[in-house]
Design a protein around this nucleic acid. Structure first.
Length: 804
RNA sequence: GCCUCGGUGCUGGAAUUGGUAUACAGGGCGGACUUAAAAUCCGCUGGUCCUUGACCUUGUGGGUUCGAGUCCCACCCGAGGCACCA
């Protein structure tokens, strides 16, 4: 009987489904393990082998943990709101809900063919009103607690499509759809106060078992920096310029101050500005710059001197000029900086261009100052009055405190993280549950009116004013104010793509609950997620947003955990054979069902794990796939024939136990590629000892191999006469006693170079090994007549003879 | 520019964390089987030479060590992220 995956895989998939083998029991008296994939967007072209790489890994981990006695939760659902469905609707007029539903059926089918052990009873879709009711509920809670507010904000605007765009829709400063350069436009936006959580989001990273890279990215994104806010009085008035600096130590080198074009002082002191019209022109110009222009001007700084205003450096009372320049950002710090060209690269560029003085006040602790550029590192102060000779680090504190006593400085912290712009001028997203009344202003819907369902529309085009298509549905938009009964309109913006994915992992725990977002007991039982797997591209979007919402839900007592994802691992991309990213437009996409048709799902699963380290990007190699298929065929022939009948030889038992031990160790570390290599080495060994491979070891092998190749192992398991599914078997214990203490091969080095090997019993002591080594025919000539200086002995590994 | 990873045969990669570099696979070459091909099976496969043995070899150059792919310093190259964040 040959290995014919096409004939066995469907059979077992049906069997698992019919017998509900992967349904998670709520009350089970076992430790829990929550294994989660990032849920996919149900794309019309289906998923490709790259998506499946992560799913295979979690499936293996889920199956392993079940066998190890855990109660495993392994669910799957759909991140169903999103642009492609809406764009498709724009073209065809078919409602996104219909296309989405069709795509889900298709992708679910792809998944079932791969033998994934999801508990489909917990399936959710973020576009389902029963689900987004709770997304809206969370929004109401955020609003109630003052964490959602409306603000006039400059957003990306495509002048050709006449619509606002999300940041993700602007690629290199151009509209993703039509390629027109985008500008900024002020539109009223809903914004979430994620900045209130900046410190907690930063500090709690420490306790998470996440890749360092992702933690680092979140840290940088949050961008906490400690410094001083210093006041520079404006000469001849009561106003002052507040600047934020992390380099108070350079204060004596400050030769001018710069305001961002948006700085409010400019308007306030307009009458005093002698060159007001020039300044206004510059501000207007800066505002209208496209993103592309801004990026390309990083090197070439522009600005204008304000004539009529002078600032005073509080540390030495020197008068300095004030500039407006767009290299200073209005939204960071105080929107103004003290410029120290000698010790800041940007200020140096600006000063060089406008001929401003450069005064050095810091010198390196050792070495010389380079004349033609800024010295930006910490060093030792000079030309700084009473602070000369101090190191930068101390000087920052001393100078700050000195000014603080005169009320001219205070210690402060700034973050790069900005509040989250939460509204989109789009149709296919969660409606924001808010009514805007002519009299009462913003009125939130009451909880009992949720879900606020997305109404059916005729046309999906944006209205042209930058509003979502919802704005055109008069009988939906125009409502009575719930508070005063007067005329009111609904909020027509929708929530961004990220909203539904911020909390979906909670809904899997209790997907049918219509009273609560998640039952308290269930949340307590299952959270946090024990293993979360997905691409690194979500490092600062989804993974930061959901930590924010999770902490918020914790604060309002909905959940008992402080962080959602205890352990995170990134899946590396699967590239096409040519090393390019797989994409529909390049035509280099490989569909999982294609591979399953030709070689079977088990080959697909094992190949994806074997191709290389799990978190690394690796190109697809069709020949590599057939290599795995060959391996399965050879294994099948050996296991199906059971040459050795019931009992294996001592040596085979020993090797089998070693395999169990090695496999468990590498699986725990998710080193799937080496784990597959162990299986191959084992089968190579069995192939030379096939007559000694008995039922005892075949069964053990099938058990530990089954997470990788569930159909393959299930079929062989039943062929040998087992009636119960192999997925219900226990992970075998390692029988340490059966592992033969064999002779080991030890290396002999002379001066660190390998000169020979000896086969000796394990655990010999230094003296015994020396005797053997000195008498070895290969070694003797090397030490003949030489003075032995030292002998380094590492038990069971090497002996190194150091000679002169 | 800054931050974070990486650089090992022809290719994907392994190396118990300082202890026998190149596991496992792919590809190639040779052989068996076959009328032939595919499939399968067996063998060889880092380089150089004076080929019995020795020397060289983990991006480059230094260093630490009895011993370095692994640690330290400098540099080169590649990937990802951030990008005027004061």
């Amino acid at each position: 009987m040959n290995y014919e995956p096409q004939n066995i895989e469907k059979k077992w998939q049906d069997y698992w489904g019919k017998n509900n083998l992967y349904k998670t029991e709520e009350g089970a008296d076992k430790p829990k393990c929550y294994v989660l994939d990032m849920f996919p967007y149900p794309s019309g072209s289906g998923l490709h082998v790259g998506h499946f790489k992560g799913y295979v890994a979690t499936d293996i981990m889920a199956r392993l943990k079940r066998m190890q006695g855990f109660n495993v939760l392994h669910p799957m659902g759909w991140d169903a709101f999103g642009l492609p469905a809406e764009n498709y609707a724009l073209k065809t007029g078919i409602h996104p809900a219909i296309t989405t539903e069709k795509n889900i059926v298709n992708i679910k089918n792809q998944m079932e063919r791969a033998g994934f052990s999801y508990d489909w009873g917990r399936e959710i879709s973020s576009a389902d009103p029963a689900y987004y009711k709770w997304t809206q509920w969370i929004f109401l809670k955020l609003y109630e607690k003052g964490l959602a507010y409306k603000k006039l904000l400059p957003i990306n605007w495509c002048p050709s499509c006449k619509t606002g765009l999300a940041n993700e829709e602007v690629v290199e400063g151009k509209c993703e759809r039509c390629g027109t350069e985008t500008t900024k436009k002020d539109i009223e936006q809903w914004v979430l106060k994620i900045t209130d959580y900046a410190d907690r989001l930063l500090n709690d990273l420490e306790g998470l078992d996440w890749p360092d890279k992702i933690k680092e990215m979140q840290k940088n994104w949050i961008g906490r920096s400690e410094g001083w806010e210093i006041s520079f009085p404006i000469k001849g008035g009561t106003e002052e310029i507040k600047v934020f600096t992390t380099r108070a130590d350079t204060l004596f080198g400050c030769t001018y101050a710069v305001l961002a074009p948006e700085h409010p002082l400019l308007e306030k002191l307009a009458q005093k500005i002698e060159n007001e019209s020039d300044v206004l022109d510059y501000i207007e110009e800066a505002k209208n710059k496209s993103d592309r222009e801004r990026i390309s001007e990083v090197k070439e700084k522009t600005g204008i001197k304000i004539i009529g205003l002078t600032a005073i450096n509080p540390v030495n009372n020197k008068e300095i000029p004030i500039f407006v320049a767009d290299y200073v950002l209005g939204h960071y710090g105080t929107g103004a900086v003290m410029a120290v060209p000698a010790h800041d690269a940007r200020d140096f560029d600006f000063a060089a261009k406008y001929g401003l003085p450069i005064i050095r006040v810091i010198k390196p602790a050792s070495g010389e100052i380079e004349e033609e550029k800024a010295f930006v590192d910490d060093g030792v102060l000079f030309a700084s009055d009473g602070f000369d000779g101090l190191k930068s680090e101390q000087a920052r504190e001393k100078i700050g405190e000195h000014l603080e006593k005169q009320n001219k400085a205070r210690k402060t912290i700034n973050y790069k993280l900005r509040d989250w712009v939460f509204s989109r001028q789009r149709y296919w997203g969660e409606p924001i549950p808010i009514i805007i009344c002519e009299k009462c202003g913003i009125v939130p819907l009451s909880e009992k009116d949720l879900p606020l369902e997305l109404p059916k529309v005729e046309k999906y085009e944006p209205t042209g004013t930058g509003e979502s298509p919802l704005a055109a549905i008069d009988d939906w938009v125009n409502v009575e104010c719930p508070k005063c009964g007067g005329k009111a309109k609904r909020e027509t913006n929708t929530m961004p793509q990220w909203a539904g994915s911020c909390w979906y992992y909670l809904r899997f725990l209790d997907n049918k609950n219509d009273k609560e977002l998640v039952g308290k007991d269930k949340e307590k039982r299952w959270m946090p997620v024990d293993l979360y797997v997905g691409g690194a591209e979500h490092a600062v979007l989804h993974l930061l947003y959901s930590r924010f919402w999770h902490k918020f839900l914790f604060d309002i007592g909905v959940i008992s955990t402080n962080e959602p994802f205890q352990k995170l691992r990134n899946v590396g991309l699967v590239l096409a054979a040519d090393g390019q990213k797989m994409s529909k437009s390049k035509g280099n996409v490989i569909a999982p069902e294609q591979v399953a048709d030709e070689f079977g799902a088990d080959t697909l699963r094992i190949y994806e794990m074997f191709m290389g380290p799990f978190d690394q990007a690796i190109g697809w190699n069709t020949q590599g796939v057939s290599g795995v298929y060959r391996f399965l065929n050879r294994t099948w022939d050996l296991a199906a024939n059971l040459y050795g009948k019931e009992k294996s030889s001592e040596k085979v038992i020993s090797e089998t136990n070693k395999l169990v031990r090695r496999a468990a160790v590498d699986l725990e570390k998710m080193k799937f590629n080496t784990c597959v290599a162990f299986f191959m080495e084992y089968i190579n060994f069995i192939s030379d000892n096939k007559e000694h491979w008995g039922r005892d070891c075949v069964e053990k092998f099938l058990k530990i191999f089954s997470p990788f190749a569930p159909h393959f192992c299930e079929e062989l398991w039943s062929n040998i006469g087992n009636n119960q599914s192999i997925t219900l078997e226990k992970w075998p214990a390692v029988d340490e006693k059966s592992i033969l203490e064999e002779k080991i091969v030890m290396a002999i080095q002379i001066n660190g170079k390998m000169r020979g090997k000896i086969e000796i019993p394990a655990d010999l002591d230094k003296g015994e090994v020396e005797d053997i080594a000195f008498n070895d025919s290969k070694i003797a000539p090397w030490i003949q007549g030489k003075e032995i200086k030292d002998i380094v002995f590492v038990p069971n590994k090497i002996i190194n003879i150091v000679i002169k």
